[in-house]
């Protein structure tokens, strides 16, 4: 057997590295692609011009993620000539409001589910779980009617914020509840003995103790709003009210093909989320599995 150590049955590290490098190249290539298109200063899809009768090397050049010239033009243009900055601001406002509202709703509900025994507790938690299975398209038409016709919030940020916060609730509640469960109840009992009210316990004791979980809930609510595409595309009608995702699709959807703008915009939008995500992904995973096991 080539490459395997006969004594221990261990596969040689060389092959393992080869395997990992292969997948790393696959997982990073599209990202490099976007970076290169973004920095190419052009709107074209291709990295390099291919001559009329290309040979192997010309083709190789065409797939090597390296632009013909480096330029910041796409970034400059997308921020100044296109309304992209406005769209980013819209997204930021919506995401920030969603985060605040989402965290508030999730923390209060999760606290009740974790600490109180009350009729309807089990049913409530199950209903949150089942709501995750509602197909988005089934809810879309009724939500559209509720938001635009009944609440009169069509084409407004508030409507989207409400919908996003509620979308994030079930996951956040399950995760927060899991975390609250790990906080010993004795802390609260002694606080009650000291004469603290429920509100004081919740805001002064429990929430500070649950900071990591609150952070993940906040991240999740933020990402829900920051990355959402379909609802925003359905609700927002004016171009100046678009969120960043809708705007990005605008660059390459239909008959437009401004791939340079798209790539530059994608990078600007993704960067904060990717960094946050890498920082907090451990908690996200534990939250997912905790919810899954109990469900």
């Amino acid at each position: 057997m080539i490459g395997a150590d006969k004594r221990t049955g261990q596969v040689s590290h060389f092959w393992l590295h080869l395997f990992l490098v292969f997948f790393t190249v696959i997982s990073t290539y599209p990202i490099l692609w976007v970076i290169v298109v973004g920095f190419s200063g052009q709107q074209a899809l291709a990295f390099a011009d291919v001559p009329a009768d290309p040979g192997f090397l010309d083709r190789l050049r065409a797939i090597m993620p390296w632009p013909q010239t480096w330029s910041l033009d796409n970034f400059r243009d997308v921020l100044t000539e296109q309304p992209f900055l406005t769209w980013m601001m819209n997204s930021a406002i919506i995401a920030a409001l969603t985060t605040v509202l989402g965290v508030f709703l999730a923390c209060t509900a999760a606290y009740a589910f974790s600490r109180f025994q009350f009729p309807g507790r089990k049913a409530g938690m199950m209903s949150f779980l089942v709501s995750q299975m509602f197909p988005g398209t089934l809810l879309l038409v009724p939500i559209y009617i509720i938001i635009t016709q009944w609440l009169g919030l069509g084409n407004s940020f508030i409507g989207l914020v409400l919908v996003y916060s509620v979308t994030a609730i079930p996951f956040c509640v399950w995760m927060m509840k899991g975390y609250f469960d790990t906080i010993p109840i004795e802390i609260e009992e002694s606080a009650i003995m000291d004469g603290a009210s429920r509100q004081v316990i919740f805001f002064r004791i429990i929430l500070p103790l649950a900071k990591p979980a609150v952070a993940v809930t906040a991240l999740f609510s933020f990402m829900t709003a920051w990355n959402e595409f379909i609802l925003a595309a359905t609700f927002l009608e004016e171009e100046m009210k678009y969120t960043a995702p809708v705007g990005l699709k605008f660059f390459v959807g239909g008959f437009a093909s401004q791939w340079g703008y798209f790539a530059a915009g994608s990078m600007i939008i993704s960067l904060p989320v990717v960094l946050l995500f890498l920082y907090l992904q451990k908690y996200l995973v534990s939250g997912l599995t905790a919810g899954g096991v109990k469900g």
């Binding site: 009350f118 409530g124 809810l139 009724p142 509720i146 509640v173």
Partner: peptide, 30 residues
């Protein structure tokens, strides 16, 4: 029941209300 578990319902209410209006009701309507 509501009186007895007042604080529990108080905490669940905001989220439940949101889910009612924007998840369960739309589901029923759908």
């Amino acid at each position: 029941t509501v009186q007895e578990h007042r604080s529990a319902y108080f905490y669940v209410m905001p989220a439940m209300l949101g889910m009612m209006v924007l998840a369960f009701f739309p589901f029923g309507y759908g």
